[in-house]
């Protein structure tokens, strides 16, 4: 199980990396943390002509507080995201979810940009990007693009990224005050990909829900939001019955797959329970 031959470029600047992608005729892959890409290479599921290593490009990592949002560089390692006070303050749900992202050693190296670009439907970060209405910044020879998370994930391991584009950053607009949250994940073992994961935020004012978001991972080909269920909560005083009703909508609308980790029926069952509980927790835990 050894990787196939490839040509390698350790890009020193973003421009150098972009040039390399542009010259490679779509035969290049971007190497960030490598925690998903390298297993695929070792299994020879991919045989790119070029690997463009972006690990040495200065300025691609780091978390910045910008007016009303957090700006996270693509090369920010999971361990940094997990431990960053800026993240813990603005997005405690992200901090909580990070402990579910693989394992200690993988989080040392894996990056947020890599996780989003890889777009595993059972991974936590793509789901959080959906939940938090993230915008994803990319760059290519043609310039910069900003893609809304909802337009970014196109299928299992498929995104809106062009072969000549590099994902450079993700921007998370801050949540309104008085937003409660919940993150729950069921996986075969802690650290495995989600069989089903549910993330919920509920914003309340004067006892009424002003914003609600529900996202799933591990259920279907992409991470997914449920606007219809979310709308049923808005303007309401959330109680158990409301939570159950919204959860029922999500359960009915989700399109889980059957695989070795669990059947579609089992996933649907999980979704129903986890969403109801998630709404309860998020509504009760408002800050």
């Amino acid at each position: 199980m050894k990787p196939p031959p490839f040509k390698y470029l350790a890009a020193r600047t973003l421009d150098e990396a972009i040039d390399a992608l542009a010259c490679s005729d779509g035969e290049a892959k971007v190497l960030a943390g490598g925690q998903s890409l390298v297993p695929m290479l070792n299994f020879r599921l991919l045989e790119p002509a070029w690997l463009v290593d972006i690990n040495r490009i200065p300025g691609l990592d780091g978390i910045q507080d910008a007016a009303g949002s957090l700006h996270i560089g693509a090369l920010t390692r999971h361990k940094t995201t997990e431990n960053a006070p800026l993240i813990a303050d603005a997005f405690p749900i992200v901090t909580a979810a990070m402990s579910h992202v693989a394992h200690f050693g993988v989080r040392n190296r894996g990056t947020i940009g890599g996780s989003l670009a890889h777009a595993d439907p059972a991974a936590e970060l793509p789901m959080l990007a959906m939940l938090l209405d993230a915008s994803i910044t990319t760059q290519s020879g043609k310039g910069k693009r900003t893609i809304a998370a909802k337009d970014f994930f196109r299928g299992s391991l498929a995104t809106a990224l062009e072969p000549t584009e590099i994902l450079t950053a993700v921007t998370l607009p801050k949540l309104p005050p008085a937003t409660g949250w919940s993150f729950e994940e069921i996986s075969r073992r802690p650290g495995d990909f989600a069989v089903a994961a549910v993330a919920v935020t509920i914003t309340q004012q004067g006892g009424r829900c002003t914003d609600a978001r529900i996202a799933l991972a591990g259920v279907g080909a992409t991470p997914i939001r449920f606007p219809q269920a979310e709308r049923t909560l808005i303007g309401q005083t959330i109680d158990a019955a409301m939570a159950n009703a919204a959860a029922a909508i999500v359960r009915d609308q989700c399109e889980p797959q059957s695989d070795l980790q669990g059947s579609a029926d089992y996933r649907r069952h999980l979704v129903g329970h986890l969403v109801a509980r998630g709404i309860d927790v998020a509504a009760g835990a408002r800050s």
Binding site: R188, P190, L260
Partner: peptide
């Protein structure tokens, strides 16, 4: 609780990696 070698009905091996063939880890 965890470990199972799975073959499809037509005899293909479905558990060809440690992602699919699940061993107990320290948490379990």
């Amino acid at each position: 609780l965890l470990e199972e070698v799975v073959y499809s009905e037509d005899g293909q091996l479905m558990t060809g990696s440690l992602m699919d063939y699940v061993l107990p880890s320290a948490t379990g």
